[in-house]
Design a protein around this nucleic acid. Sequence first.
DNA 1: TAAAGTAGAATGAACGTTCGTTCTGGTTTT
DNA 2: AAAACCAGAACGAACGTTCATTCTACTTTA
Lengths: 212, 212
Amino acid sequence: MSTVANKKLRGEGLRQRVLETALGLFSTRGYFNTSIHDIRREADVSIGSIYHHFGNKEALAKALYDDLLERMDAGLREVMEREQDCRARCDGIIAFLFQAATEEPRTMRFVLESRHREFLPDEPPVCSSQPFMRMRECIEQGIASGEVRPIEIPVAATAAFGGAIRLVHLHLDGVLEQPLLRYLTSMQDTAWRAVATDSSNPTSNTIKETEE
Amino acid sequence: MSTVANKKLRGEGLRQRVLETALGLFSTRGYFNTSIHDIRREADVSIGSIYHHFGNKEALAKALYDDLLERMDAGLREVMEREQDCRARCDGIIAFLFQAATEEPRTMRFVLESRHREFLPDEPPVCSSQPFMRMRECIEQGIASGEVRPIEIPVAATAAFGGAIRLVHLHLDGVLEQPLLRYLTSMQDTAWRAVATDSSNPTSNTIKETEE
DNA sequence: TAAAGTAGAATGAACGTTCGTTCTGGTTTT
DNA sequence: AAAACCAGAACGAACGTTCATTCTACTTTA
């Protein structure tokens, strides 16, 4: 049974259907366990169409990868624009990650879990991609403004978001008892404790009533 | 050029050579980009020998995976035995991860980075494997003893070790400026701040004299 | 002690299948 | 009419695997 409507499509619509189908197959079976013929069958298009639009399998994966990274980055840009101080931004980023992992697990699986370098050898590692650079940047500014302790950037960035990212992995692997979003505020608080300066860190109570 | 000596081997020696070669190829090119013929060539053994010892490609990967997980687990068991309080154990675990990633990057890459479920479909996710369960257990005991704040176990465990694990990923991806071990004490301190109870958390000084 | 026998480890050519890709011929759009 | 798009049969290289055979080390027989 196909996950997409079976009305015959052409042009951009067809292209999108192929991308959608490829995302589904790549994220569940993996790139190497998915053949072009599999995609053809499930998307209900022809081999010729796929090669007309994408050229080859690797380019199809790259198009999908770029598309998803751009969408993720758009989400993060939105957070960075909406929130101004570092704490609010970190919270927003984690919330965005959790929400995306909940609503679009396939996207998250493909971006976060698959080893892109195995099938896109010329692509830089994910951690150098825009979304991840944005997280790093957020932390850098936090250090500059004094909200974050002055420690090495890579340590601060991984400490701030590494826990959340690992929790997303556990969620995608299906080993969490509770829905991911149930852990959100707890994770935000815990992550912030790791990197916050002592003055901006709660010392004996975890309840924060006021915005700063 | 082969990375192993080229004296003809038989029995267990041959088996080990195949495993060693497979680790090298799997961890750099990935499972699907490595053919049995590649392993045969680099290990300087025959196709038949490989099938005699392992049965098929998947079983070879599984044998390697089990072997490496067991070795990692042995390292963690040793830490848990040597250290008694939760803080020292967390520090020890992170130190072990960093050291292993530095000295045996291929092992770490294969255990941490490759998507096992793509080629070992019946294997549970890495996060359910012994080494990861041991980390979780350590945190559970920390909560019981009052050293760790009473928060959800998955949040505490990922917060305690997620940052370190992500930093290991950055190291393996070659995007860190400094050697991984240069970040060790900073990462240990930062990770502990995330999960420690307020009483056991440093509030205004970051300097802690520890032996290295 | 030498010869014959035996188990199983090692070998590599060959096989069937799958895969990514190409190609030719048709259809739709402009 | 030209250009863009779609269809799917056909192709050839590469892959995991098999299997008949050879080789090696050890045991038994004479």
